[in-house]
Structure formats: structure tokens, C-alpha cells
Amino acid sequence: MTKENVLKIRDLAISFKTDNEAVDAIRGIRLDLFRGETLAIVGESGSGKSVTTKAIMGILSGNGYVNGGSIDYTYTDESGNAVTTDLLKLTNKEMSNQIRGKRIAMVFQDPMTSLNPTMTIGKQVMEAMIYHYGYSKEEARKRAIELLDRVGITDAEKRLKNYPHQLSGGMRQRIVIAIALSCDPEILICDEPTTALDVTIQAKILELIQDIQKEKNLSVIYITHDLGVVAKVADYVAVMYAGRIVEKGSIDEVFYNPRHPYTWGLLSAMPDVELNDDELYTIPGTPPNLAKPIQGDAFAPRNEYALNIDFRVEPPLFDAGGSHRVASWLMHENAPKVQPPVALQKRLEKMRKEAGYYDN
């Protein structure tokens, strides 16, 4: 069965003006999101994860600008026709009226930055429905109660009168999810949606998003640095480093058979209560300064497996089979055959067994 591609990002490049120079935050990325599936974008802070999704939403900060590329979004219009539009070519007004909040919605990391402290919860949940669909206040109120109920908020009618500060962090994040779902979007972008929450609430929020995704056949993009979250929710994974995608593929391909040394580092740095390591692994060095031109592979100075060519020529995305693509010269047919560190090999073996990887 052919998958329906709802979002196709091609050769996206984004820079930010600073006082002295331009920072090349996104350096030519290609990504696909399919109907009803989940794409997780992972990487260290500053790798370009959030900038990519802000470009999709049309909410880049004032000093940000797109250097090139396209973001093609395919949706069904009111007449039932399939329409493909490049989101980068829409004006801010067109994005606001046609796309943002209505067809593509976003859940941010900290609910307190998304919620207006001076407005009641009810007013904030109702706002988008009144704006996009012209609901009467009574219609919007009824739908708001249904939404709060759906995201697991008890006493929904009473909560409509509350202000954000009167609710717990977990409840506030559920409110933000209710607002994001209020106009029945086709794509939901979740930018670190559980970072500020404790572990038990995290699991409930992830479960809630998954339930709603199945129910509505939503396409979901997760931005996270938590690989534990990726293992639970993703169909596809894209690993970002210094504004580029260095490895991408299905969850089985990337998570259980990683081929890029940076992905090895991320997986090695995951805490594991069963391992007797005295110290948690850290990737050596620091990310590059994107305001300066990068020669070769941006990860080379931190990569203990770097080849001579890594310092001179940027690697292309090599085909590793299936949907697996890896931007590393180690994938070249003439490169030496390098295995992940022994400790990571043991961890991967354990993860594969736990996930029933060999049962497939």
C-alpha cells in the first residue's frame, strides 16, 4: 500500500542575522512525514530541531530567513480535492488563516509560555474555534468541554473558569494539547512536550497523544532529545547535528541498527539503571559555531572514527538499505569497517531483545 505523504521538506536552508554575522542554522535538510505516522527529530540543543518545525509553522523569529528549499504540504480542501502548497510561499496572514492552528498545530515545551495568564482556560480553548470556524460562544463552549474531557481533565465545565496558574503542570500541558486539537488539525507538532513534567505524567501525556493520533489518523512530529521517548512513539527517526540530518530511517533501522558515530554517542549517553557504569557517557567536544563556514563533516572534530576526508569534504547521505540514510564517509564502500563501541553493542542487543526486534 502506498503511503500518503503529507509533508515533504526538500533542501531547506535557514539562517539568522546577528549583529556581526549570519548563523546558518539549517543547512539543506530533506524530510518526509506520512499520514497517520510519527516522525521523531532528535539531536543536541542547537542542532536545528525546533527551527525546522518553526519554519513549518511559519513562526521563525524576526531575524530568521529562509535561504532556499521547499516545504510542500498536501491536504484535502473544503471541496474534497487534494491540494499541495509550499508553506514557505504563503504570507503570514495566509498561514494564520489557512494553516496555523487549523491544519497544522503545535504543542510547545512549556505550557506557561503558550497559555495567557490573564485569560480563563475556557476562553483560550474556545478562541481558535471561533476564529477559524465562526462557532458561536455556546457551540465553542460545548466543544471545549468535550475536548477537556477527551484529554483527561476531570470536572471540565468547572475548569473552563480557571486560570493557568490554578492548574498543575500536567493539567496545563493537557490544556495546551486540547487547544492544539480544537480545530481538528491533520499534523500535530510536539516540541519537547513532556520535558517539564515528572516521569509518571510524561508517560500519561505520551499515551494521550498516541491515543488521539490513532483515533484521528493524525501525523505527528516529535522534537526531543530523549531517546527513550523516541523508542515509545516513533515510526521514523531523523537525527540532526549542526543543522543537517546525519541519519534517518525507520525506528528499527536507526534505533536498533545505528550507523552514524553521532547516533552511537546519543544512544551511549542514555541512562540505564541495569548497567553498572560509574559515569554516563558524554560525546567529547562541543558543537561547531554555525556562524563560521564548516569544512567537511561538522561532526569530524568530535568523532573518534573520523577519516581524513571528513575534515575536507562534507559526506552525502549514503543509502544503508530500506529507508535508512546515513551522512558518514564510513558508509563509503572503500572506508574501513568500523563497529560501534562494545558497550553500545551490548546495550543495542539488550534493547533489541526487550523490543521483540527478533520476533519480527
Rank of each mutant, 00 (worst) to 15 (best):
G48A: 11
P288T: 13
L290A: 11
I189F: 00
F34K: 11
E207H: 08
V246N: 12
I245E: 13
S79C: 05
D191C: 02
E274H: 14
L181W: 02
L181T: 01
A25R: 04
S114P: 03
T195D: 09
A178L: 04
V237G: 03
I205V: 13
A55S: 12
L60Q: 06
F255Q: 02
K123R: 15
W264D: 02
D198F: 05
V246C: 15
T91V: 05
E192N: 06
R347C: 10
T91E: 08
K353P: 06
G296Y: 03
D297T: 07
E146K: 15
V199D: 03
G43M: 11
K142P: 05
L115H: 06
T2C: 13
G243Q: 03
L12V: 01
E138C: 05
I245Y: 11
N303Y: 04
G62Q: 14
R312P: 07
L266D: 00
W264H: 06
L12S: 05
D359R: 14
E94Q: 14
G265K: 01
L197S: 07
I187E: 00
A156Y: 02
D32Y: 05
A105M: 00
D72W: 00
R259Q: 08
R352N: 09
G322L: 01
G64A: 14
T76Q: 12
K8W: 04
N5Y: 04
D11M: 13
G170N: 12
T91K: 06
E146Y: 12
D226I: 02
A140W: 00
M112A: 13
M129V: 04
V326E: 11
A234L: 04
E127F: 00
E94S: 15
T282W: 07
S61R: 13
